[in-house]
Design a protein around this nucleic acid. Structure first.
Lengths: 152, 152
DNA sequence: CTAGGTGCTGGACCGAGGTCTAGGTCAAGC
DNA sequence: GCTTGACCTAGACCTCGGTCCAGCACCTAG
């Protein structure tokens, strides 16, 4: 309803970016479609701009570099005819997110196991330090303590 | 079998970090447990060190800042008694990973939809540009074209 | 003896992404 | 008229994580 044009401050609130960052993004060419200006030179963002920015934020926070977003924006700015290249960029990012997801799950797994181990450790009253290096057994090569280091 | 002590180069290969980065990590205090040195001052990493580093890499690549890893390393270095704080750090990170996973899934969702839309668009021979701003309808405030912008 | 390989240190440098400052314009409200 | 607040620009600055360099030490092989 409100409609037609938000100021940079409003857009900042809306997107979670700072006004600084909004201007940075503009300079960096992340915006598909020129931002209009009012009579006195202030930015006026359309609904569409805000939607675009919202997407940018998602791209960004999922690891797409500014340069890539900028490229994508450029393609969109140039209009129809380059959809294949846009698709390429998107698919590439899609792929990287998928990998990242797998990687994070893997890391989470490790953390989960550590957390678990510490929880059990604490619940059971301290005994041996889980996750401790083999104590400074200075002289002895000590293979006898390499038990649960990785598994703790 | 190989056992007892790897050089920095080997550890680099093993962990995927550069030797530069390994030294950086050491300076930054990421290593729980002093790295031993051989007679001529070269680092000698134990199996345990390498395992620790491997974990560090996972922490790092899942977004834990060096400072936090360093803190954790410090706690481990200080030995038993601070398990609760270690657990805190781990749980915090666990939480952030979980959030990050959710966030990434959300972003992936967006990307998936875009990719989909472009695929259909391309398969069907170009018609309208999905994901295009309302064309420069200069004079008309034009609410009539705000259809599938976000959903494209 | 000399070279090649590997390592050491300290410090400079880099790129990415943000953040902040200085100095100014403009419009509304008292 | 004056203040306040939102905005403008250009450019400096910051953090983080990492890379690279110079200059040196050491070891081993030819």
């Amino acid at each position: 309803m409100a409609g037609k044009g938000l100021g940079i401050g409003q857009v900042a609130q809306h997107t979670g970016l700072s006004v600084h960052t909004l201007r940075l993004y503009e300079r960096a060419g992340l915006l598909a479609g020129e931002v209009r200006r009012d009579a006195s030179g202030r930015r006026v963002y359309s609904e569409w701009d805000v939607e675009w920015l919202t997407n940018c934020v998602k791209f960004r926070t999922s690891g797409m570099p500014l340069a890539t977003i900028s490229r994508l924006a450029q393609l969109v700015r140039e209009g129809a005819g380059n959809e294949a290249e846009r698709l390429d960029l998107l698919r590439e990012h899609q792929h990287r997110i998928t990998e990242q997801l797998a990687h994070l799950r893997d890391c989470l797994d490790l953390i989960d196991r550590k957390v678990d181990s510490y929880e059990r450790h604490l619940a059971a009253g301290a005994s041996g330090d889980p996750w401790q290096q083999p104590p400074p057994a200075s002289a002895s090569p000590g293979a006898e303590l390499a038990q649960q280091v990785g598994g703790a």
